[in-house]
Design a protein around this nucleic acid. Structure first.
Ligand SMILES: [Mn+2]
Ligand SMILES: [Mn+2]
Ligand SMILES: [Zn+2]
Ligand SMILES: [Zn+2]
Lengths: 150, 150
DNA sequence: TTCCTTTTTAGAAACATTCTAATCTATTGA
DNA sequence: TCAATAGATTAGAATGTTTCTAAAAAGGAA
């Protein structure tokens, strides 16, 4: 299991504004006020797993007014640029993950919370031959956790 | 990988009406016209992976008129009774699986289609120690497949 | 600045799913 | 056989998440 602050590349835990701006520019996106506020929440606090609504409420609480449409636009643009990945664990809402390296998850069902399991720890053995004409896009392991029955 | 008709218990591929009725009764549910029509589609055609909408359109095409609310009611009742399990692979809709034994999946992303991988074939090694106070509810492995890049 | 493109936005729309509350049906046992 | 009752079905409204629309605002190149 990884530490909450571990990241593959540089440590963005205390990223200065200029670095965030570079990160956005390198994705061929303009560093708008809204995008900078989102990038700060997403990329300056270690690895995170967030829904659109959670990110929206965080950014509003931080004092920046952003519409929900902009949250979705940017989550998708960041995902397309490889700065985020989408994790499917719930059939009603999407989670976005700031850890874009291959890894797996614990999912705390009662809290709706994801927790990383590093690829170096967990191994999947015995994947059958792939159906003809297909290639692996990703391998997702979700270990669903419930509260221990007393 | 399992054959499409393989099932853990009896073979329900050509289940007679009386057996379907028993199956429903043993779940403490009444064998209504609607429930029997759904059970026939679900449990007399090998292992299946269906969305509510797909099941609805199949049952309508078979000539039985059932409301979508009833489809959902019954999918959830069958799931609660252990006759179905829900598989989360898409953040916008739910899939219901007639194979309730522990197993994993290929997911054909382009077609939105699930395919079983038997537990006897695929192994997950190295699950970290569980967070305190939690227990494993299930382990879901999804191997996402895209069309092979030519 | 000017011009062009990207971005943001409010609100409408779409979509899957659940809820409501009325009607209908299966079961039971008098 | 037939009430009585609990369970099941239904249409349509409501919900929650996500996407779309179209107009206004802002960024960036020159
Ligand atoms: Mn999406
Ligand atoms: Mn459900
Ligand atoms: Zn993660
Ligand atoms: Zn399956």
């Amino acid at each position: 299991m990884t530490d909450q602050k571990t990241n593959t590349g540089a440590d963005f835990s205390r990223t200065d504004p200029a670095a965030l701006e570079d990160r956005i520019r390198s994705a061929a996106l303009r560093p708008t006020r809204q995008r900078l506020a989102l990038a700060e929440l997403l990329f300056s606090n270690g690895n995170r797993h967030l829904t659109a609504e959670k990110l929206h409420s965080e950014v509003l609480h931080s004092g920046v007014k952003i519409s929900l449409a902009t949250i979705y636009n940017n989550l998708h643009q960041f995902t397309a640029a490889g700065l985020l990945r989408e994790v499917v664990v719930d059939s009603s809402k999407s989670y976005f993950d700031t850890n874009v390296t291959p890894h797996h998850h614990f999912f705390h069902e009662d809290e709706g919370r994801l927790q990383d399991i590093e690829s170096s720890e967990l191994t999947v053995l015995g994947i059958p031959n792939l159906p003809a004409g297909t290639a692996i896009s990703s391998i997702d392991v979700i270990v669903r956790l419930s509260k221990q029955s007393s």
